[in-house]
Structures are given as C-alpha cells and as structure tokens.
Computed example of a mutant assay.
Amino acid sequence: MTRADEPFPPPGVDLGHPNVARIYDYYLGGTTNWEIDRQFADRILQAYPIIRPIAYANRMFLHRVVRHLVKRGIRQFVDIGSGVPTMGHAHEVAEDLAPGEVKVVYVDYEPVAVAHSRRVLSKHGDPRRHTVIHADMRDPQRLWSRVAETGIIDLTQPVAVLLIAVLHIQQPPAPGSGATEDLGPCLVKAYRDLLAPGSYLALSHVTDDGVPPGHLEMLADLKRWYNASSSPVVFRNHEQISGFFGDFTLLEPGVTWTPLWHPEEASDGDQTASLPSPNESLLLAGVARK
C-alpha cells in the first residue's frame, strides 16, 4: 500500500528494487522515497534502530566539512553521489558562511535524486551558482567534462570533491569490460588526478574495523540484506580507507569516526546523533588537500 501523497516517479526510476539513495533519505526522515524503499528500511530499523542516528552522524559530518572548507577559502564544491535533498545540502550550509559566493555542482546517477535536487535548487538555489547533473561516477572523464560544461565550476581552480557515504556501495565494472573487482580505488585515483592543486577530497565510508564487537553481526546482516535486495556493499578497514587519499595531505585529525571530525564546526541547527561512542557511527571519514 502506498501513501496518498506518493510522488510520481520520474522516467528511468526502478521501483522494482529498493534504492540506496532513497533508503538513506528515509533514514534521515525525508519523503523522497517509495513504499519498496520504506519496507526495506523499516525492516532494518526494526532490527537495528541505531541505523538512524548513524545516518544523522554521517550527514552532520558533511555539514561540518563544508563549513570547515569554506573557512579555508574553498568556494567550489562537486558533490558526487549527492543523493536526495534531505537535512541540508552543501550549498545551503555554505550559504550561511559565505552568502552569494559558493558554487556547487551536485552529481548523482539515481533519477529521483537528480529530479528532486533540481526541484529544490529551482526554489532555494541560484542557477548561476548551483546545479545538478545526471552522471555515472564510474566514468570520471565524462563526469568531469559534464561538470565543466555547466559553466559553474572553474576546474583550473581549487575544488572540494565530496564522496560522502558513496564508496562502500560497490562500483561494478561496465558489462563486457572483463574486469571483476570493485572500481572504487581506481575511480578515486582518477578524480584525485583531475583536481587542481589546492583542491580537497572529503569522504566517509562504512567499516567493520574497530567497531564494537556487538556491531559485527549487524554489519553482516546489513551486507547480506543490501546485497540481496538493493546495491551490493563493501566494507574496508582503516588502512584501505586512508589509501583513498593517496599522496594528498590529510587534515587533522586524519581518518577518524564521523562524530570526531572537527566537532567544533557543528551549528545549533544540526541534528544531534545520539551514539553512545564514536565507533558506533560505523563510518570512518577524512578530508585531504592536494
């Protein structure tokens, strides 16, 4: 049974399977999701209600990253795998600190995320500084060309690339390519190479390394459920997640749990994530400079 206000899906939306972007939107309290997404998410939340504060903690990490980098002088952001507009997008956070200055290009492959981002930006954005494009992160050169074509971002100048809660979703090779491994590490290297000097890379990633022992069963269940019904996931350890930054210089405090990354950048309007300990956030995160 669907809600009375169920949104009409844009062309290309697969409603036969729950989608990670729409599931995440539901965790965050958003409404850009369908019954199939809610049924999947409710099953998880019933078994593991801590998933919702984990999602909040990750979203608040995004907010703090944007504030920190704006204070460091960054005025251009490319948010890859930006998802649906829930609990404050990057441009909204940046606008509080540098009104009229920050430019943001959102990128997603999920049609719902793109359609709703366009709707939000049409009401609460500036078309000269904010846009969204539909692109596949598995084609870095094409995606980067699409960003350039918007005319919003000057790719010869420093840019902050955001890969927030993206890389633990497996990035499979294109059909017929002959490759079998997850493309995540080589894709991130390609984006690092594309960035101008002085740019930043920010990411967060689910891990099973260093989490409370009681959470390992939960992670195993989540992996099994997502692999069977939505998009396959991959968990990496601290060393592997740190490796995504290559030879970039990590900002203090390095790769750490999402609640521990510059907590002083929180604002009064941020959602509080009620987690008993930082490692119960299950996501490691960091930011590094080229």
Rank of each mutant, 00 (worst) to 15 (best):
266 A>W: 13
21 A>L: 03
60 M>P: 08
157 Q>C: 09
228 A>W: 08
51 I>R: 15
23 I>H: 07
260 L>G: 01
186 C>L: 11
248 F>S: 01
161 V>G: 04
229 S>V: 04
71 K>F: 15
268 D>M: 11
206 V>N: 10
289 R>M: 11
181 E>G: 02
9 P>S: 15
189 K>E: 05
218 M>E: 05
281 S>E: 08
83 G>Y: 13
189 K>G: 02
197 P>K: 07
122 S>R: 11
194 L>S: 12
187 L>N: 04
8 F>R: 15
46 Q>H: 13
284 L>K: 04
35 E>Y: 15
24 Y>D: 10
93 V>K: 13
110 E>H: 06
49 P>C: 13
31 T>M: 15
250 L>I: 07
175 P>F: 07
37 D>R: 09
195 L>T: 03
252 E>M: 02
219 L>N: 04
125 G>C: 07
120 V>N: 09
146 R>I: 02
151 G>D: 12
85 P>Y: 08
113 A>Y: 03
58 N>L: 08
26 Y>T: 00
86 T>I: 09
271 Q>T: 14
95 E>H: 07
290 K>W: 10
206 V>S: 10
236 R>D: 03
91 H>I: 08
157 Q>A: 15
90 A>R: 08
173 P>K: 02
145 S>G: 12
281 S>C: 06
66 V>L: 02
93 V>Y: 10
80 I>S: 07
128 R>F: 11
176 G>R: 02
148 A>L: 12
217 E>Q: 08
247 D>A: 13
113 A>D: 12
213 P>C: 05
168 H>I: 04
259 P>G: 00
249 T>A: 12
147 V>H: 11
43 R>F: 14
15 L>I: 11
80 I>P: 01
94 A>N: 08
81 G>M: 09
226 Y>R: 03
61 F>P: 03
236 R>E: 06
26 Y>A: 02
86 T>C: 09
50 I>N: 13
214 G>T: 03
23 I>L: 13
276 P>M: 06
110 E>V: 06
29 G>E: 02
109 Y>P: 00
39 Q>A: 14
235 F>D: 02
41 A>F: 00
172 P>G: 05
192 R>Q: 04
150 T>M: 08
147 V>Y: 01
190 A>N: 09
164 I>Q: 12
176 G>I: 01
257 W>S: 01
261 W>I: 04
71 K>N: 15
224 R>W: 03
139 D>R: 13
131 T>W: 10
194 L>V: 07
83 G>P: 06
142 R>M: 04
192 R>A: 01
11 P>G: 14
124 H>P: 00
40 F>V: 06
268 D>Q: 14
34 W>C: 06
243 G>N: 08
202 A>C: 10
106 Y>A: 04
91 H>C: 11
21 A>K: 08
164 I>F: 10
81 G>S: 11
92 E>Y: 04
287 V>A: 05
27 Y>R: 12
110 E>S: 05
28 L>S: 11
38 R>F: 10
